[in-house]
Nucleic acid binder design. Structure first.
Lengths: 115, 115
DNA sequence: TCATAATAGTGTACGATGCATAGTATAAGA
DNA sequence: TCTTATACTATGCATCGTACACTATTATGA
């Protein structure tokens, strides 16, 4: 993939990562596990992207977190809040609308309509 | 729409605007007309977003432009280049892959799978 | 005629995010 | 013991979307 296409793709992914993360936090997850969970689902995310994202979402009160020190090593578990669920549902709708409109637009480029 | 949701939505739209614009430039269009054309298609875009985007895409050689001074007032027409078409097709594929994966992920959040 | 709106574009500055990079620290495996 | 995997924090950069300010012409209407 060329460097230009890579930049465009990065910009495309922007924002969708929030959606992806929120979708996985109905059950508590810690950062490192989320990376791999999403990876398995085909959504690659860097640690350097995910950790700040989680902290941001907590600050915005969409997530709550708690340290678990009983396991082999300390893990910070995140789970979606009630408020987070509301935002998530609305954002999900926005995304669905967007993809529908864009799909229509991209389909249109195959015909020769000059207005 | 709350200010938080608005921010998320803006970030979601990011990158897709490039795709939307490229899809419309098989025939020459000028900025102002593009805004309205996209608006009619359900994709709102600010002038302050579109004009810089067009200049950026031209600088990256995905578009070429030419001034038309014969009409009622000067208009800068943009059209997609060969290179731009290639990038567009690839980006379109990326987008389709992404939306498919995300759709799967978002569907999954309705079940209770704990890994 | 004069004010206003619509048209068409440029330029600057700011906020948000994704990522590269670097660093800390523990556990597990060869 | 050395390396790798795990788990997280912190800093800084590049990109993009938008607000805002600005210029300038054409069209409309009181």
């Amino acid at each position: 993939m060329g460097p230009l296409l890579e930049t465009f793709t990065t910009e495309l992914r922007r924002g969708t990562l929030t959606l992806a993360v929120l979708s996985q936090l109905r059950t508590p997850q810690y950062g490192y596990s989320l990376v791999q969970r999403l990876e398995r689902a085909g959504v690659a995310i860097e640690q350097s992207t995910l950790y700040p994202l989680l902290r941001r979402l907590e600050k915005q009160e969409l997530l709550t977190s708690s340290w678990d020190t009983t396991e082999s090593r300390p893990r910070k578990y995140y789970v979606i809040s009630e408020y987070g669920s509301e935002i998530y549902e609305q954002l999900k709708k926005e995304w669905e609308t967007m993809t529908f409109e864009l799909k229509t637009l991209l389909k249109g480029d195959e015909n020769d309509e000059t207005d």
